[in-house]
């Protein structure tokens, strides 16, 4: 079954076209790398898919729900980590997760167990009572991912989850994401190709607002070690 179906999705900022008639589908349960040079329209696409902003034209469905016509149903299926983890510096991690769980409509009795579950999964149990402003960048990112996991959404949309992390933290976050395979569908945007190679089964490359590749990892790497880099540079060169 298709988790995301996008048809001719277009977004214009005044006369600048950010994304131009994108069409693609993403199947349930896969981890998809969403690649593209800076300014290619990755974040714009993600913001539209999560219902943060409407498209100028086109359709997008998440888990069968149209994001423009049935936004609440679609949003219930999505866990989203924006480019900057959306934290409140004045709240503790526990207070923050409780607040997000309530916004996501997690039933009152399950909130505690749910916080327990996501903090164990993301390895932040020791930080639950610290203020989010006191956390290191790696932990802030993990809290951002923990927040996305609340309510056990079928689809996770992660916008550059490893941005600004050191190599060790990067590896840990990637492993965490890899462990979601099967349980969640993951769309992961990044411009670090080695990360994509390590965890993604499918790759979607976007350049100047258009899809230039939508294929399985094997097809894009063509069996070579540097295959993905070559394909990426070739497709996004003009």
């Amino acid at each position: 079954m298709a988790m995301i179906e996008v048809e001719k999705l277009t977004k214009k900022y005044r006369d600048r076209v950010a994304i131009d008639a994108l069409s693609f589908t993403i199947d349930e349960g896969s981890i998809v790398g969403f690649l593209g040079p800076n300014g290619a329209g990755k974040s714009t696409t993600m913001k539209i898919l999560t219902g943060f902003m409407p498209a100028t034209e086109g359709k997008a469905r998440v888990a069968g729900f149209d994001i423009f016509e049935k936004p609440l149903e679609a949003k219930r299926k999505i866990g989203y980590l924006p480019e900057t983890p959306p934290l409140y510096p004045e709240l503790t991690v526990r207070g923050y997760l409780k607040f997000v769980a309530e916004l996501k409509g997690v039933p009152g009795k399950q909130v505690r167990a749910e916080i327990e579950r996501v903090s164990t999964a993301t390895g932040i149990t020791s930080e639950l009572d610290r203020l989010t402003s006191a956390l290191s960048k790696g932990y802030r990112q993990r809290v951002g991912i923990a927040q996305a996991l609340l309510g056990d959404p079928a689809l996770l949309i992660l916008d550059e989850p490893t941005e600004g992390l050191d190599p060790r933290q990067r590896k840990e976050v990637l492993e965490l994401i890899k462990s979601f395979a099967g349980r969640h569908t993951v769309v992961l945007s990044t411009h670090i190709l080695s990360e994509v190679k390590a965890i993604c089964q499918r790759v979607l490359i976007i350049h100047r607002g258009k899809i230039v590749a939508n294929d399985s990892m094997e097809a894009l790497t063509k069996g070579k070690e540097t295959g993905l880099e070559d394909t990426f540079i070739q497709l996004t060169s003009e």
């Binding site: 999560t50 219902g51 943060f52 149903e73 949003k75 924006p82 959306p86 997000v100 916004l103 996501k104």
Partner: peptide, 9 residues
């Protein structure tokens, strides 16, 4: 954090 408010149901 506005994105958080707007992307939760």
């Amino acid at each position: 954090t506005f994105e958080l408010l707007m992307t939760t149901p």
